[in-house]
Design a protein around this nucleic acid. Structure first.
Length: 462
DNA sequence: TCGGCTCACACCTTTGAATCGT
DNA sequence: AACGATTCAAAGGTGTGAGCCG
């Protein structure tokens, strides 16, 4: 099977986003290569940072004509374009659980989406090198549509079956450790296993997960400022559409920094998937059950495996019987049902815990701006950042944040103009980090938050 | 009729608090 | 009193299958 690292060893295992190199690989269908250009990247995807309350969904722009769609997932072999929007020199990302992803991709990865949100499995877990150990970075994850088609499972494979639904509000998931030092990120793989996929757009606050009450079960609570802090945990997708996760690395001192020193964006072709509300390909179901520890009950010798479920149904029809236990005790180690295929099942390995001091970097000056509470009351008032706000200095020397209040929103990203013909905009509008998200202080949060997306608690998210 | 979606369910892992022993 | 190991319960993550809906 195609393996990018083998085809392009000089590029390492991570591929930055960017326009295809001219004449980089003539064997690759131009139309398909276009699909990897991610023309939407120019839309200030980052400016839509948590624009979950954006009122009008945008139609998926699809000129030029749709590329010919591959017959199945997992057969595509796009050449990576070693180019980034803003260089973070020497930074390299590799997919840590690549083998697992490849296994799924060879079948055609499907991801369940639900109203409540479903975690991705496999999760995106990457190792990063080449960061400045002293500088601080944000790790972001988003998911973008691959093409303008809707798909249907035709018994043996996925086939396009019409035009894609209008595009949903863009959201970006921020790794809860963000911002952290380069040393922190490079110490162990960075996992995005807590991100959830949903098909629900009904949440009035978009990305905000409405759990109340600091600090036990609720919003992120910045004790330093005594205010709320919001993080997205769910990315909104359409069912039966093909998506590609992307990982962005932003050099910035804080989430709400007005100064940031560049972006590197990466994607891994093997992480492409089709979103579904119920699995279509039985092979994917088997793989998920075999690899995901939470689905252990559905394995061959689990109580919830098909054989046992059928038996229970029969017993039910025949009337009550003594509970059988002997037949369930065969969870012998070493059998196929014990396999977790490694990787994601070990994400909470305590051995990978960071050093005690690492999880709590020195607090940075708080951001100014309107309060998150105010956003809750009047979310619309927080959108439409004025264009005169500070923009990124291209020669950013990691200037420390001033700590003074931002005049409107807490922080902004501005994409640099791309080179001619790169597919990037000549001048991107100021990108607004949604202010409601950015209220509060630095990360990790100063409280132990179990279970939630804000969790940066005693057990590191690796 | 059919494809897609939602929901309740049983089973499982994860997580954190409580308890106990040293 | 402090620390680590163990136990326990609650929370939450799984796929399944029936039923609903357009």
């Amino acid at each position: 099977m195609y393996h990018p690292r083998e085809l392009y060893p000089s590029l390492g295992t991570g591929y930055r986003l960017g326009a295809p190199q001219p004449g980089a690989d003539s064997s690759f269908p131009p139309a398909l290569a276009e699909g990897y250009r991610y023309p939407d990247l120019d839309t200030p995807k980052l400016d839509c940072f948590l624009s979950g309350i954006e009122a009008a969904p945008r139609t998926l722009a699809a000129p030029p004509p749709l590329p010919p769609l591959p017959p199945t997932l997992g057969t595509e072999a796009p050449p990576p374009a070693p180019e980034s929007l803003h260089p973070l020199p020497g930074v390299s990302l590799s997919l840590d659980n690549r083998e697992l992803w490849k296994e799924f991709n060879s079948v055609g990865t499907e991801m369940i989406i639900t109203k409540a949100g479903r975690r991705m499995f496999p999760a995106c877990r990457v190792s990063v090198t080449g960061l400045d150990p002293e500088a601080r970075y944000l790790f972001l994850l988003d998911v973008v549509p691959v093409d303008g088609a809707r798909y249907r499972w035709q018994g043996r494979r996925w086939e396009p079956s019409g035009k894609a639904e209008p595009r949903l509000p863009d959201r970006v998931y921020i790794h809860p450790d963000s911002p952290a030092t380069g040393a922190h990120w490079m110490r162990q793989p960075v996992s995005f296993h807590r991100v959830k996929l949903t098909n629900s757009t009904l949440d009035p606050h978009g990305h905000v997960r409405p759990r109340l009450g600091p600090p036990d079960k609720g919003w992120g609570w910045d004790q330093g400022r005594g205010s709320l802090l919001f993080l997205p945990s769910q990315l909104i997708l359409h069912s039966m559409h093909k998506y590609q996760p992307r990982i962005h690395l932003v050099r910035a001192a804080q989430l709400c920094s007005q100064h940031w020193g560049g972006v590197a964006s990466f994607r891994f072709p093997e992480t492409m998937f089709i979103s579904v509300t119920a699995y279509q390909n039985p092979r994917i179901t088997q793989l998920k059950i075999a690899a995901n520890p939470f689905a252990k009950g559905f394995r061959e010798n689990g109580r919830n495996c098909k054989r046992e479920r059928d038996a229970r149904v029969k017993r039910k029809l025949r009337g009550p019987e003594p509970v059988a236990t002997a037949t369930y005790g065969s969870d012998a180690p070493g059998g196929p049902c014990d396999s977790t295929l490694g990787g994601d099942a070990r994400e909470s390995d305590p051995e990978q815990a960071p050093a005690p001091g690492e999880a709590a970097p020195a607090p940075a000056p708080p951001c100014g701006g309107p309060s998150a509470e105010a956003y809750l009351l009047h979310p619309a008032a927080f959108h439409g950042a004025p264009g005169h706000l500070p923009t990124r200095n291209p020669s950013f020397p990691e200037a420390p944040d001033s700590g003074r209040p931002a005049p409107y929103s807490a922080a902004f990203l501005e994409l640099q103009p791309g080179p001619p013909g790169s597919g990037y905009p000549a001048a991107a509008p100021p990108a607004s980090f949604a202010s409601h998200f950015l209220q509060g202080g630095p990360f990790p949060l100063p409280y132990p938050g179990p279970g939630a997306y804000l969790d940066v608690g005693s057990k590191p998210m690796y």
